[in-house]
Nucleic acid binder design. Sequence first.
DNA 1: AATGAATGAGGGTTCATTCAT
DNA 2: GATGAATGAACCCTCATTCAT
Lengths: 192, 192, 192, 192
Amino acid sequence: MSKVEENKLLKQSRLMETAFSLFTTKGFAHTTISDIVREADMAKGTFYLYFHDKYELQERLIVWKAEDLFQHVVAQSGYEKLEDPADKVIAIINDILDQLQKTPHLLKFINKNLSWGVFRRAIGRAENNYITFFQNILGIQDAQKLEIMVYTIIEFVSSTCHSVILEQNPVDLETYRPFMTRIVRKILETEL
Amino acid sequence: MSKVEENKLLKQSRLMETAFSLFTTKGFAHTTISDIVREADMAKGTFYLYFHDKYELQERLIVWKAEDLFQHVVAQSGYEKLEDPADKVIAIINDILDQLQKTPHLLKFINKNLSWGVFRRAIGRAENNYITFFQNILGIQDAQKLEIMVYTIIEFVSSTCHSVILEQNPVDLETYRPFMTRIVRKILETEL
Amino acid sequence: MSKVEENKLLKQSRLMETAFSLFTTKGFAHTTISDIVREADMAKGTFYLYFHDKYELQERLIVWKAEDLFQHVVAQSGYEKLEDPADKVIAIINDILDQLQKTPHLLKFINKNLSWGVFRRAIGRAENNYITFFQNILGIQDAQKLEIMVYTIIEFVSSTCHSVILEQNPVDLETYRPFMTRIVRKILETEL
Amino acid sequence: MSKVEENKLLKQSRLMETAFSLFTTKGFAHTTISDIVREADMAKGTFYLYFHDKYELQERLIVWKAEDLFQHVVAQSGYEKLEDPADKVIAIINDILDQLQKTPHLLKFINKNLSWGVFRRAIGRAENNYITFFQNILGIQDAQKLEIMVYTIIEFVSSTCHSVILEQNPVDLETYRPFMTRIVRKILETEL
DNA sequence: AATGAATGAGGGTTCATTCAT
DNA sequence: GATGAATGAACCCTCATTCAT
């Protein structure tokens, strides 16, 4: 990679990191392009060399961060060494929750913006195919049923843990986690 | 109530209804005060006689609409005639889901803006005290435990049904509802 | 007319006069909205209360100035008292040339922007119907032939006199006028 | 000429042709340097090796195209074989009008930008000296009188034929041409 | 109480031009 | 000579809010 190419990637990363930091601090709507480039110490025009507009930046940021999250799961959660499908799922969830508790602004950003569709894409990139990935874990062959199950668990965990992690409301994560875990096991047992 | 008082309330209602219609159609950010007053056939200045700013309007709109929703539950869901606590909860959920499916724009508006705190307030107004309300239904005496349970169910239902109702994704509501119902029953049985 | 109404008209006039002055000094393309409102001592937003954009302002300016010009002709050229059609036309032309020589920036602005279509509209407004006006003068009944004749004379006079008035190039107006006048008479005699 | 020199000329020509095509299609103001170099398949910086700025390009383009136009007249109009001065002038005018009707975008570009000064220069280059050229044709010795006559005819023809060719307004060229020709003959007979 | 003309900071975006490579 | 990433001033336009009437 040439020095110029390298520099471009660096510039883009700096813009994305800066934007991410501002989006999570001030909110998307209240962050202006001017804010971003000022913080990133660039000219306004430079922004438009890398992103068509604020919305493209946002979308790429979501995918990027979701990919990161999932890559960590694959590498660090140790789910592969476990036998029981439910244990695997819980391991994955715990890994993600631990990540999010360490970086609550990431949770804020992802949860406000992550749609099921984007998530699917993000997982897909990291793991080639998210369906195969979950089929291997859960052993559900029917793609439709598999999707409903995964969807339900992801929505359940992310929505309940959002204010638990961010505001310790109604309780803190360590108090809530066992309860949540028990429910996840039950969801997995529920007939579709 | 004097005629003047009455008139003021009418004006305010007209502004709120108009704003709600525009917020759900064009989105909050893309709705201007000008849009609202033009539609409501008033002068711009009049808006500021009734609301401190755009954000106060939004907040009051959320509370108002959530109250409406809950009032309907109390009056129409028939939960009171049922015996089993789980049946009562399911009846309430079904009533709300039916309401939301009829008015998807309401779901869009509420879900994007409704926080646990606002919901608590809305229920409280409609039924005097939301804790008592759910205590009577669920028979859980410990206020903390009660809150966790209610919180979990509300978050679970609202988050999973959001894209199901609005986008029939991953499946439509009638396909999803039995699965969701079975899980709610299991959540209610789960030990805290 | 209410005081408010009056004020609005005043504001609009001030904007138009200021814009006219800047357009003729710096050119249309190099005049910004900011320039105009700064000079007119107003806020930027005020501009957009009166004009949709710079182009609408320009068009209205052209029509307004062309109307002025033509109104003067009707009132002051004395063409009505003359017998011979050619004499009438020459009187009108002389009146216009005299006006333009007094206000060369008006010539600059009008000539750069005045299309045959706009001119027709401007005359039409001032004299109800430009066809009738010229029919009365020239005695040509066929509308098509009349239009060609009027068009030819207007284009001839305006194009030749443009640099003559503005730059005394190739000669000054008083030297050029007799030659031009003789040609106009010949054009009027030319068979269509 | 060295290969390098040749290459430079080629680059410059390609830039000018591309710019001309874009200026006449999208207009000068709406054509960006980026557009030009993208179309010409060069880098942005290269543009500034050949032209000081956008305006210099425009000016050189006008002169270049006017020269082309006139060179065609000299080579193809056949005016030299005619006897009568008026016939010669008409032949030249007809040749130019035919050229312009074939390439209306050229007319648009030239007419919007061509000043008497530029035209004089363009003729001069093609024919060494525009005064001698017209002296030979018209037989007018007095340079001042000659210039007035040439100026008058050029302005008359170009201004009247502009909207006739581009918009067939008020009539089309073939309908207008005989009338215009008769007038040109009369102008030539008019005493200065 | 009601009006709506006026405000002006700030939004996103463009693009001629420069300059390190 | 050629490149194209970077610049940043300047553009047009929006709109929440104010205030004289």
